[in-house]
């Protein structure tokens, strides 16, 4: 009893970890299923079919391609815009700072359905047809704030003395920025870009409001398929994404830990 009480927080923590990971494990397990009907809900037989033929369902790979394309462009643009704002907020004094902070905060505090629908009314009012372009505009909009917050934290933790030291060693402001500041902020920028990409790649609600029948992203494909039964290939792509994310984040953690040890 005393043992349970002492380790209660560990026991609950592990149970919650299980709750977090269970659906991902189910997705991976059922990517090896060969369902009897078109519903991949009941386990029937082990098979590699979906893994050897991931594009086997019409439309699935083109939707993944479109999501990758939009995710890539949106995360690059949002990272550039967001990093600039983060530097202004983290490094400069200027009038209108609180207004800027409010403008950055608002998109994160607004439900997606509100942002998606208000953009739709704007596009309708301006006569802009929905499609890849409108999806891209929307994705850049909701990604910028998240990049700003991520990069700003890193810029704020930077010691301004480092730039002064560079200047003392006769570096020009440009040199000090490119050779000292930017490399130090780079992990924050990378984290912001990764976050932006995953937000864009995964978005359904805002995309749905601003897409056309010819611009089907991967989440929209899944949504459409969910009405009649999701093909096993969706589980394959979901598994690859999960394992890839664990791999990338794990690798970054290991490299980060090693670097920290070297510095120490």
């Amino acid at each position: 009893m005393a043992w349970i009480r002492r380790h209660l927080v560990v026991i609950i923590g592990l149970l919650v970890m299980g709750y977090i990971l269970l659906p991902n494990l189910v997705v991976i397990a059922y990517s090896f299923n060969r369902p009897r009907g078109h519903l991949n809900i009941q386990w029937s037989r082990f098979s590699f079919d979906a893994w050897t033929n991931p594009c086997g369902t019409p439309g699935i790979c083109s939707s993944v391609g479109l999501s990758l394309k939009i995710g890539l462009i949106a995360s690059i643009v949002a990272t550039i815009l967001g990093t600039m704002v983060a530097f202004a907020l983290g490094r400069h004094r200027f009038r209108g700072r609180s207004l800027t902070n409010l403008l950055i905060f608002m998109p994160m505090a607004t439900p997606e359905v509100v942002m998606g629908s208000s953009l739709l009314t704007l596009f309708i009012a301006m006569g802009i047809p929905s499609g890849q372009m409108t999806i891209l505009i929307a994705h850049i909009m909701f990604c910028v704030s998240f990049v700003v917050v991520t990069v700003k934290a890193r810029v704020a933790s930077l010691d301004p003395k480092l730039e002064e030291a560079a200047a003392d060693l006769y570096a020009s402001p440009a040199q000090a920025f490119w050779r000292v500041t930017l490399p130090l902020v780079a992990p924050g920028i990378a984290a912001g870009a990764l976050l932006a990409f995953s937000l864009s790649f995964d978005d359904y609600i805002i995309t749905n409001f601003n897409a056309s029948p010819t611009s089907v992203t991967f989440p929209m494909f899944i949504w459409g398929a969910a009405q009649r039964g999701v093909p096993v290939q969706v589980n394959v792509i979901g598994s690859v994404m999960f394992l890839g994310a664990v791999g990338i984040v794990g690798f970054a953690q290991i490299v980060g830990a090693r670097r920290k040890r070297e510095v120490a």
């Binding site: 970890m17 899944i222 969910a226 984040v249």
Partner: peptide
């Protein structure tokens, strides 16, 4: 490791994970 595992599901599809609850 635990931090990675808390964040990792966040990097995979919201819809697919929600559909997994149908299976569960």
């Amino acid at each position: 490791v635990l931090l990675v595992l808390v964040i990792a599901p966040f990097y995979t599809s919201f819809l697919i994970r929600t559909l997994a609850w149908q299976t569960i």
